[in-house]
Nucleic acid binder design. Structure first.
Lengths: 133, 133
DNA sequence: CGTAGTCGATTACGCATGTAAACGATGGAG
DNA sequence: CTCCATCGTTTACATGCGTAATCGACTACG
């Protein structure tokens, strides 16, 4: 082992791209799946070929976002990072970049731009009540 | 004019990259500015050279995110897209990608991950009251 | 036992991005 | 009038991403 990466636990998760994210969504919904099964879920809507899905899966494995488990001659893929974690880091990224790290301005912005439906508002009110209890 | 782009109003704004965004922030704060002045604001913190800033400014002009106004032999740059618009589209992108277009789950997520301070919560409550009136 | 289908791995290729140096025009100093 | 500093523009190059074809291995069918 001339140059093995330490890799103990100090690696922040590598950034997942847009196309890769679509693949992750499928596997967050159900896993483990084979490449072909993933393709069944995403190839049609995104106009991809199976080859594309295979590439994305490989890259995600390299990025340590997916784990593989051999099943006969093929692999089963499953997420190694929880959706919560991904969603959390992406949200924080946005809040940091655009709102100086404060969540309230984001909320204010959504409110002002009619991005909030009646239902949203009701739901958020409910959440607030819970938070205060 | 063999092939003039219609360009009337049907062009959705081109995507602004991360590095470009840093430049935009400077100009959103104060404008118009020269390339050198922009550099004064961002080169130090990001470890950039003036050349890099020049490239980013050019690309932003191409993307129609900046307008130029000649001032002697140099240019003054100012934003053509409002910060509000940019922030809005980026926020919507995130909400669409991660929360199925609904803002409430985003809020729920922020709440659960302790991303909301006391102040945030108070502010949001206030905003909610306003919304309902 | 050979052959066709299927797998993951390798290679490809164009465009965007981050980062910057080189170049040509030009205006101001001497 | 000449030369240097300074513009914006052009060119450069590595990396990442989107999208995919090709390749070598293997398995299942005939």
């Amino acid at each position: 082992m001339s140059e093995s990466a330490p890799l103990q636990s100090g690696d922040q998760p590598e950034r997942i791209s847009d196309a890769e994210h679509a693949v992750m969504e499928v596997l967050w919904q159900r896993s483990p799946l084979t490449a072909a099964e993933v393709c069944e879920q995403v190839c049609e809507p995104r106009g991809w070929s199976l080859a594309t899905v295979k590439t994305l899966l490989s890259r995600l494995v390299t990025k340590q976002a997916l784990a593989t488990e051999p099943d006969g001659k093929r692999f089963l893929y499953s997420p190694r990072v929880a959706r919560e974690a991904y969603v959390g880091s992406e949200s924080r990224r946005l809040v940091d970049r655009l709102f100086g790290g404060r969540a309230a301005p984001l909320f204010a912005h959504l409110a002002e731009s009619d991005a909030l439906t009646e239902d949203d508002i009701a739901e958020i009110e409910a959440l607030l009540k819970e938070l205060k209890s």
